[in-house]
Design a protein around this nucleic acid. Sequence first.
DNA 1: TGTAATGTTGTGAATGATTTTCAATACAAA
DNA 2: TTTGTATTGAAAATCATTCACAACATTACA
Lengths: 152, 152
Amino acid sequence: MEEYAVIFNQYLNHKGLKLTKPRRCILDTVFSMHTHFNAEELYDKIRGKTSSISLATVYRTIPLLLDAGLVQRALRSEGRERYEHIFGHPKHIHWLCRNCGDLMETDLNTLYPILEKQAQDLKFKPESIELNVKGLCWKCIPIENEKQSDEK
Amino acid sequence: MEEYAVIFNQYLNHKGLKLTKPRRCILDTVFSMHTHFNAEELYDKIRGKTSSISLATVYRTIPLLLDAGLVQRALRSEGRERYEHIFGHPKHIHWLCRNCGDLMETDLNTLYPILEKQAQDLKFKPESIELNVKGLCWKCIPIENEKQSDEK
DNA sequence: TGTAATGTTGTGAATGATTTTCAATACAAA
DNA sequence: TTTGTATTGAAAATCATTCACAACATTACA
Ligand SMILES: [Mn+2]
Ligand SMILES: [Mn+2]
Ligand SMILES: [Zn+2]
Ligand SMILES: [Zn+2]
C-alpha cells in the first residue's frame, strides 16, 4: 500500500471510519494529479475510470483528506475551492497573475524562521499556512505597460 | 473630502464612473468599520442609516473598492468572502484559531525582503499579498490536549 | 446462522452567496 | 428638450456545495 494510503487508512481508523472502495479511488485519483484541482475536476477525472463515484461522495471525502493532512486548500478561483495533495510536497508560495491566470510556486521554507518566531510570541500552534501573492507575471508586465500608455 | 474618498473618486473618474450617493455611502461605511466584514454585514450596517441601499449595489461596489486598492479580501469564512479596508493599514498576517474562531493579526513587514527577493527572481510584480495561518490559539491548545488524552 | 447496529453511498432536492436581468432613474451634454 | 450613458433596486437566475433519505455493506454478537 502506498504511504499516503497508509496514512489515510490510519486516519480513518482513528475516526472509526473505513477505507472503502470509493474513498480509495478518490484518494488515488488525488495523488495521480499533480496540479491544483477543484471538486468537479476531480469528479471528472474519476468518471473516466471503471468505477464511477457520485459527486456527493467526492465532496464528502475532500474534508477527510484535508483533516488527514494529505490535501490542502489552494488558491480559490472562479468561485470554487481548489485543492492540492501535499504529502511529500514542500509548502510553497502561490504567485497568481491577475492578467493571464498563470500560477507559479516558490519555496516557503525561507520564511519559516520568522513565522515561527511570531507564532511563539502569539503562543499560536500553526497547522496550515497559505501564502498567496497576486499581481502580474513577467509576460504580462509589458502588456499592462502598453495599456497604460494607450490611455494617456 | 477624506483621503480615501479622494482616491476612490480618482479611481472612478479614471474608469469613467461617478462617485454617486450610494457608492459614497458604502465607502464611508466600509471605513467606519474596523473589523473584517462580509457583504451582508456591510449591508446591515448601511440599513441602519437614513439612506437605504440594495444588497445588489453593495455587491457591485465591493469589486470597485478592491480594484481601487482601498479594500482587500481577508480570510474567507463560513462560505462567505470577507473584506477589510486597507487604506492606511499596514499589511498583516492573519492567524485563525480553528477551534474558537479567534483571529489575530501580526506584522507582515519582516517578511518583505524575502518576498521581494523571490518576486525579483520570478520577474513578478506583486500587487496584493495574503498570508493566512490556521491552527490553535493559546486558549485552545490546552483544550485540544485534553481531548487527545480523553481518547486514549 | 440470523439479526441488529452502524457506517456508506447515489440520487435528487435544497440551500444560499453571489450575479444577472431589466425596467426605471439620474444626470450631463448637445 | 432630446439623447445617451451610467446607475439603481427588485426580483429572478446561477451554481457550488450540502442535505435528506432510502438502499447497501459490513461488522458485532445473540
Ligand atoms: Mn500549489
Ligand atoms: Mn485583517
Ligand atoms: Zn500573466
Ligand atoms: Zn482558539
